[in-house]
């Protein structure tokens, strides 16, 4: 019994030791970009301002779920990074605060229009175009031609070689669906998805999983954001990135201030800082190949050159709204996912 007491006692010590001291200026950052980028942003902001940053990294869907669950008693101050749709959704549900940053005149138009579409409750910080990547080794091993357009993926020889995420679970895949609808028109867009369906070997849960599987040689072609595919190639995996010839949709990585933030002043400081060219240049240090929203920020030589990619005029307001999203997803569920493969 003495041992049990000892254990109970030592656990109390452990609890007590896990308490931390409070300090003066602080900021709680919810970060939905990749881990090392999040770390770098947090530490650099600390260095630049002396404000302590508490950073939690979660995917944008998880962060949205958390912000929504915490809405009656917000714990976070700023939500930085992640695809724009959950940010727009949060704005729509009044979970985030509108703010006019003095940095706005330095930004690309697409970043501003993201803000204007959402009552200034969110703003663009980077963008990335949709495309696909393929494993060059596997393509050669299976004697497959090199694809270069969206429609190439419908060819029967790619049967069982294409992977994309399930639009019900992944924002990337929803962007794909919405892009096809905007690129080809709704009816033809769904015909495309049906044709693609018969070549798909798996609908993954997470958006970047298809290209990771391609990198490891578990899949041949993965439909993802191009910067994710570039990252695989730069990491050393045999992946080639394709910007489809018909043109493509894109995402706008966004940032929002959480409504009722406990550290509102610090949140605004972070917001302004994150829009500066210096802060956006940090992306290069962590192999983040998205295009920064500040016109003065540098882009990586490995990044897909946005000027050579045909971008469609993606309607974020319409396709980011929950009604349109539900309608398209339901149609995809009924018309596409139930077809035999």
């Amino acid at each position: 019994m003495k041992r049990i007491n000892l254990i109970a006692f030592s656990s109390l010590i452990a609890i007590a030791a896990s308490a931390t001291a409070a300090s003066a200026d602080k900021l709680t950052l919810y970060c939905s970009a990749q881990e090392d980028w999040c770390q770098l942003m947090a530490r650099s902001f600390e260095d630049a301002t002396g404000i302590d940053v508490n950073m939690t990294r979660k995917s944008s869907g998880e962060t949205f779920a958390q912000v929504k669950a915490e809405s009656s008693n917000p714990k976070g101050d700023v939500w930085w990074g992640g695809t724009g749709d959950p940010h727009l959704q949060a704005a729509e549900e009044n979970l985030t605060e509108s703010y006019m940053s003095p940095m706005r005149d330095q930004l690309h138009d697409w970043a501003i229009s993201q803000a204007e579409g959402a009552d200034n409750k969110t703003i663009g910080i980077y963008s990335g175009a949709l495309g696909y990547g393929y494993n060059t080794d596997l393509l050669a091993a299976n004697n497959l031609p090199e694809p270069s357009c969206w429609r190439d993926l419908l060819k029967p020889e790619y049967k069982g070689h294409v992977q994309m995420a399930n639009p019900n679970s992944s924002g990337t895949a929803y962007t794909t669906l919405a892009s096809m609808v905007q690129l080809f028109g709704e009816e033809e867009g769904f015909e495309f998805m049906k044709g693609l369906h018969s070549n798909i070997n798996q609908y993954t849960k997470s958006g970047s999983a298809p290209i990771k599987a391609a990198g490891r040689g578990e899949n041949t072609i993965g439909i993802v954001f191009m910067h994710d595919a570039v990252k695989q190639a730069v990491s050393g995996f045999p992946v080639k990135v394709v910007a489809p010839c018909e043109g493509t949709g894109y995402e706008i990585g966004s940032m929002s201030i959480i409504s009722g933030a406990r550290n509102m002043d610090e949140a605004k400081k972070f917001y302004d800082w994150a829009l500066s060219a210096d802060a956006q240049n940090l992306a290069l240090q962590v192999n983040a190949f998205q295009v920064p929203s500040n016109r003065g920020a540098e882009t990586s030589p490995s990044a897909p050159d946005m000027s050579t990619i045909k971008l469609i005029d993606y309607d974020f307001k319409t396709y980011g709204s929950s009604d349109e999203r539900k309608r398209l997803l339901q149609r995809w569920d009924e018309d596409v996912s139930t077809l035999p493969q």
């Binding site: 639009p167 924002g171 849960k205 997803l329």
Partner: peptide, 13 residues
């Protein structure tokens, strides 16, 4: 279990 997770954090919320 995965369906539950993605019903909460996925694109459908």
């Amino acid at each position: 279990s995965t369906e539950i997770f993605f019903a909460i954090v996925g694109a459908q919320y």
